[in-house]
Design a binder for these strands. Structure first.
Lengths: 221, 221
DNA sequence: AATTCAATACGGGTTTTCCCTTAATTTTTG
DNA sequence: CAAAAATTAAGGGAAAACCCGTATTGAATT
C-alpha cells in the first residue's frame, strides 16, 4: 500500500517535468510518475490512471487557463486527490486563492530540494497541508506588513496579558469585535491559538524593528 | 483626602533618608514625611503618627533585626499600612520573602528617580503592588535561569500552539500536570495568562540566546 | 534526618477562548 | 465609481484555560 503512490505532474515545461519525474522515481514509496503538459492531457490521464497526488504548476504559457482553474476542476472531479502546487514566485494572493477557493494541499517553491518534496508528500497523504519554509517566510512577512492598526493594537494588548474583554474596554469596542480581530490574526499568521499567535508576533516584531531600538536587558547570558 | 498622605522613612543612613524626605515633600499630595533610624524609633513613631506609607530600607547595620523583621512587625500591628521596600541590590530570594512572608506592597531600587517613586506611591495606595522595572528585569532573568527542564518543554510546546492536552500527550503526563507547570510559570514570570507568558518568554529567549544563532528572516524592513 | 522543591496527579468550578454564522458601516483601492 | 478590505457587532455553543484546593513521590539541599 505504501509503495503504491502514483503521481501526475502537470507542467508545460517538459524538461522541468522530466527532471522532477526522474527524481520522484528514485523514491521506493513512489510507484508511477506521469506527466501532462496541458489541461486536457491532465484530465485525460486522471481518467485512465488512479493517482493520489497531482503536482501542479501555477504558471502556464496559455491564457486559456492557469493552475487555479485546473486545481478547481481536479478537486471537483476527484476530491480525494491531493494537489501540490509548485510555484516560482510565491504570492500571498495566490496562497489565499489556492487554499480557500481551490482547496489545494501543499504550496511549494520550485527550488525546493527533493527531500523536502518527499516530506511534503508524506504530509499531504496524512491529510495535512504543507507549505515550505521559504514560501512561508515570504507569506508571513507580506502578511505581517499589512496588519491593520487595530490588529496591531489588539496584539500589543494581548502581549500585556489583557483578556479580550479588557482590550474591548481600552479600545472602546465590543468584546465580539476584539474576538474577530484575534480570529483574523489567526488566519493571517496561520496559527491555531493565541499563544502561538503571540509567539510568532514577538519574533517578527523583534526581527523587523528598527536597529536603533535599545535593548533593555542589563546583561547577556 | 488626597494630600493627606503621611509617610515614614525607616532607614539608618540618615543622609539618604533626609534626601528622600526633601524630595517627597516637594509633592503636594504628600502631607508629612518622618524619619526613623531604627526599629524602635519606627514603632514609636507609628504609634504617635497616623501614616499610610512606610518606606523601608532592607539593610541595617545592626544584626539584631533587618528590614524583613521590621516589615513583618509593622504589618502585624498595622495591616492597613503600605510598606514600600528600598534596596541597593535586588535579590529574588528577598523578593519572595518580602511578598510571601511580609506582604509588602512595593519593591524599589534605591537608585530610582523620584517621579517613579511617586508613581509607585499612587499604585500602592490604589491597593496594587509595585516593582520597579530595573528590579523586575533582574528578578525575571534570575527566574528565567532556573526554569526547570519540564517547564521549558511546556513553554516550547505552547509557542507551537499546542494546547495543554496535546502537550500532556507528547510529554506523556496528565493534562492536570501541564496545567500546574503553566501556573507555576505564571508565578515565576509574574504574568496573568498564557499569552503574556509567551510574550515574555520569547523576548527573554531571544535576548539570552547565543550570538551564533542564525537569523532566519530573509530581509529586514 | 529533616526540609525543601520539582514533578506528578485529581476534583470541581468559573472564566475565557474559540468556532460558526450573519451583517452593517466605513475606508481603501483599483 | 465599484469592488475589496477593514472595522464594527451579535448569538450560541463547545472547548480550553484558569483558579482553588489537596496529595504523593523522589531528588536535592541543609
Amino acid at each position: 500500500m505504501d509503495n503504491q503512490i502514483n503521481i501526475l505532474i502537470v507542467e508545460d515545461h517538459l524538461s522541468y517535468a522530466q527532471g522532477m519525474q526522474f527524481l520522484l522515481q528514485q523514491n521506493p514509496k513512489i510507484n508511477e510518475v506521469n506527466i501532462a503538459i496541458d489541461r486536457n492531457e491532465a484530465l485525460a490521464k486522471l481518467e485512465k490512471n488512479a493517482v493520489q497526488i497531482v503536482l501542479l504548476d501555477l504558471q502556464f504559457d496559455t491564457t486559456e487557463y492557469d493552475g487555479f482553474t485546473i486545481a478547481k476542476k481536479i478537486k471537483q472531479l476527484y476530491p480525494e486527490i491531493k494537489i501540490m502546487v509548485l510555484t516560482q514566485h510565491a504570492r500571498k494572493g495566490h496562497h489565499r486563492r489556492l487554499f480557500d477557493e481551490c482547496a489545494v494541499n501543499a504550496y511549494l517553491d520550485k527550488k525546493l530540494g527533493i527531500e523536502e518534496t518527499y516530506l511534503a508528500i508524506d504530509e499531504v497523504l496524512k491529510g495535512n497541508t504543507y507549505i515550505d519554509k521559504s514560501i512561508q517566510q515570504i507569506l508571513d512577512i507580506e502578511e505581517f506588513m499589512k496588519i491593520s492598526s487595530r490588529e496591531r493594537e489588539v496584539l500589543e494588548e494581548l502581549c500585556e496579558g489583557q483578556i479580550q474583554k479588557q482590550i474591548a474596554d481600552t479600545l472602546s469596542i465590543s468584546p465580539k469585535t476584539v474576538e474577530v480581530h484575534v480570529r483574523n490574526l489567526f488566519k493571517k499568521f496561520r496559527v491555531k491559538n493565541s499563544t502561538e499567535l503571540i509567539a510568532r508576533y514577538i519574533v517578527y516584531r523583534n526581527a523587523n524593528r528598527d536597529t536603533n531600538t535599545e535593548m533593555r536587558l542589563p546583561f547577556k547570558k
